[in-house]
Amino acid sequence: MEKIIECEHVSKVFGDLVVLKDISFSVEKGETVCLIGPSGSGKSTMLRCLNKLEEIQKGEIKVNGLDVKSVKNVNTYRSNIGMVFQHFNLFPNYTVIENMTLAPRTLKKLSKKEAIKKAEELLERVGLSDKRDVYPATLSGGQKQRVAIARALEMNPSILLFDEPTSALDPEMVGEVLDVMKSLAKEGMTMVVVTHEMGFARDVANRILFMDDGYIVEEAPPLEMFQNPKTDRCKKFLSNFI
């Protein structure tokens, strides 16, 4: 299989704080990899390094075979990697369809007509066709996150990164967002998902990475990780979810 993301000995510091310590992992095309671990362990930072929202100090990250240090145009690079945030981060000054078409049109990736057509298709797919022309303020959390996913898909990314996409949602809305993510996984989208939804990780992930204190402590397919975690740290973390 073709490796889309390869991280080797990645290390990242903020001032004196070493947040990522010698991280190595890879993601193959079409894989869904879940990143789990306690708060503060460096999961968000890891994701943000992948799309160059943060720069790494040591090691190497290759995306689609290209060393991210050698990226010339960071904007083009980022437009190929979708990111979905915990707090949705929809643009409140634009309608749903405008949120989705802003980037492809500004970057001249699609014409206005193409962008709108594509956005309408994506809205239908996430079940929000009727919300096409409303402002984000009028949407529920689950609807906002589905629009955010559709907005990321509009750029036709080769990778989607999710940073706790359901953590800010009321429990009854978690399912609708996870369903969209599940269907993406089934279609072969390459996804890295930071999540505390162990049900989702168990059912959808190809592999799970357990992070603690800046290290990847364990890496295994879901059943193996949940049934017999090798380290005490992982055991202890997982026991919070039973």
Binding site: N75, F85, A103
Partner: peptide, 9 residues
């Protein structure tokens, strides 16, 4: 962050 991650300058 959302705008930059979509590729806007």
């Amino acid at each position: 962050e959302a705008a930059r991650s979509l590729g806007l300058s």
